[in-house]
Simulated assay, not measured.
Amino acid sequence: MSFSARRYPLVLWTIVPLLVSAPATAQDIAPAEALFNQGLADMDAGRYEAGCNALVESQRLDPRPGTLFTLAFCESKRGRVATAVARLDDFLALVERMPPAQRARQAERAAAAREERARLAPRVPELTLVLTPNAPAGTVVTRDGQALGQASLGVGLPVDPGEHAVSTRAPGGPAWERRIAISEGEKKQVTLEVKDPPRGREIAPPPPVSRGGGEVSSGRRAAVYVAGGVGVTGVVLGGVMGALTFGKRSVVAEHCGAGIGDSREEACDVTGFDATRSARTTGLVSTIGFGVGLVGLGAAAVLYWTEPRQDDRVIGVGRVGRAARAASRWVGAGVIAAGPGATVVGARGVW
């Protein structure tokens, strides 16, 4: 049978496409026609690989029943019997959907398609792919680069004769690949392997850290900042108030007959009296400020120097750990002495 006589009515069943398919754009029709003619030329020359590829592209650009029919016979000629049967089925299904008048014009083609399909069907091989029972959920199976759904596994599926690449990949695991050869008419079942995901290296846990110790250290550091801030503020306030107090000395000396500490305020005029009272107030605030400042700075220093070292929080329990912690605690803060009249707070240590 010659596929080069596209213009002859006697061979329309092999060649001439019908204008019953989806419309193509004008810019696609001309390339599709050229590819169809090229495909026929390659088929006549026995170059079925090139001819079928040209027909596939022609059908993509301008889908027509005649092109589909010719492509089915091209696939049969190059030995892809499963693909040829699928193309013939598509063509016959298309003819069944045509109006009666068009279907009548396709009667001879349809008869030839049924005859060719009956001849090829026993030659179509079937390949059944099965996963091992312990395959992880979500394992992906591919055949010739196409992923297969779960429903496609364990079922004999038609494939073209020859070699097929099959692979599996478990979630997070490496790919397992295998090439499977199958002949015309053969029915083969293959159980696929699945490689387990690699086990991660065991990482040693970090040294034990006491959560409470970390909170204590953080709270102690905050207390250092607060105490230091209070101490600096007290010292600054004492200095400012002290300066104001000394500034009043000249006013008191000029308007009073006695010094600031003299209780004989009746010897002062109004200006001197106000200056005396103001000086006493600023002097008292200055004294309190210096006192608070010194206490705050002292507390900050004690808290800072008695803070546990980093080694205390990361050294494990044991003879060496206990010795290291004992060596690091060379300063301690607390109540040194207490009595009815006063309580002494300070630090103890070894220098």
Results as ranks from 00 to 15, higher is better:
Ala45Arg: 13
Ala22Glu: 13
Arg47Asn: 13
Arg64Ala: 15
Pro31Leu: 08
Ser21Arg: 07
Ala50Leu: 11
Ile15Trp: 01
Glu57Phe: 00
Leu55Asn: 05
Ser21Ile: 01
Glu57Trp: 00
Ser21Pro: 06
Ile29Pro: 00
Asp62Ile: 02
Thr14Cys: 05
Arg47Met: 00
Glu49Gln: 08
Gly46Asp: 02
Leu40Cys: 12
Gly51His: 07
Leu61Asp: 03
Asn53Trp: 00
Pro31Phe: 06
Ala54Gln: 07
Ala50His: 10
Leu40His: 04
Ala30Glu: 15
Gly66Cys: 09
Thr14Tyr: 12
Gln38Ile: 01
Arg47Phe: 01
Trp13Met: 00
Ser21Met: 10
Tyr48Lys: 02
Asn53Tyr: 05
Asn37Thr: 12
Ser58Trp: 04
Phe36Asn: 05
Cys52Leu: 03
Arg64Asp: 14
Ala50Cys: 02
Arg60Leu: 07
Thr25Ile: 02
Met43Leu: 14
Gln27Leu: 12
Leu61Gly: 04
Met43Tyr: 04
Gly51Thr: 06
Val20Asn: 13
Asn37Gln: 02
Gly51Arg: 02
Ala26Tyr: 07
Cys52Ala: 11
Ala30Ile: 11
Asn53Arg: 15
Arg64Met: 15
Ala32Cys: 10
Ala34Trp: 02
Val20Arg: 09
Pro63His: 10
Glu49Ala: 14
Gly51Ser: 05
Ile15Asn: 08
Ala34Gln: 14
Pro65Gly: 09
Asp62Cys: 07
Val56Leu: 04
Tyr48Ser: 09
Leu55Ser: 06
Pro31Lys: 09
Pro17Trp: 07
Leu40Lys: 00
Phe36Lys: 04
Gly51Ile: 02
Ala45Val: 00
Cys52Arg: 01
Ile15Lys: 01
Ala22Thr: 14
Leu35Tyr: 07
Met43Thr: 03
Leu19Trp: 10
Arg64Asn: 09
Ile29Thr: 11
Ala41Asn: 12
Asn37Ala: 12
Ala54Trp: 00
Cys52His: 02
Ala50Pro: 02
Gln27His: 06
Ser58Phe: 06
Ile29Asn: 04
Ala26Trp: 03
Val56Met: 01
Gly46Arg: 03
Asp28Pro: 01
Gly51Tyr: 07
Ala30Arg: 15
Ala45Asp: 10
Thr14Ile: 03
Leu35Asn: 04
Glu57Leu: 01
Met43Asn: 08
Pro65Val: 15
Asp28Ser: 15
Phe36Cys: 06
Ser58Gly: 13
Ala54Glu: 06
Leu55Lys: 01
Ile15Val: 13
Pro31Ala: 10
Gly39Pro: 07
Ala45His: 09
Glu49Gly: 13
Gln59Asp: 14
Pro17Ile: 01
Pro23Gln: 10
Leu18Thr: 00
Ala24Gly: 15
Leu61Lys: 13
Thr25Arg: 15
Val16Pro: 03
Ser21Gln: 14
Val16Cys: 04
Leu55Gln: 06
Val56Asn: 10
Leu35Thr: 03
Gln27Asp: 15
Pro31Met: 09
Ala30Asn: 06
Pro23His: 14
Ser58Thr: 08
Leu40Gln: 07
Gln38Ser: 14
Arg60Cys: 02
Leu35Cys: 04
Ala32Val: 03
Pro65Ala: 10
Cys52Tyr: 01
Val56Gly: 00
Cys52Asp: 04
Pro17Ala: 05
Gly66Glu: 09
Glu49Trp: 08
Ser21His: 07
Leu61Pro: 05
Asp62Asn: 15
Val20Ile: 13
Ala22Arg: 14
Asp44Asn: 03
Gly66Gln: 08
Leu19Val: 08
Val16Gln: 14
Leu18His: 06
Ala22His: 11
Glu33Asn: 11
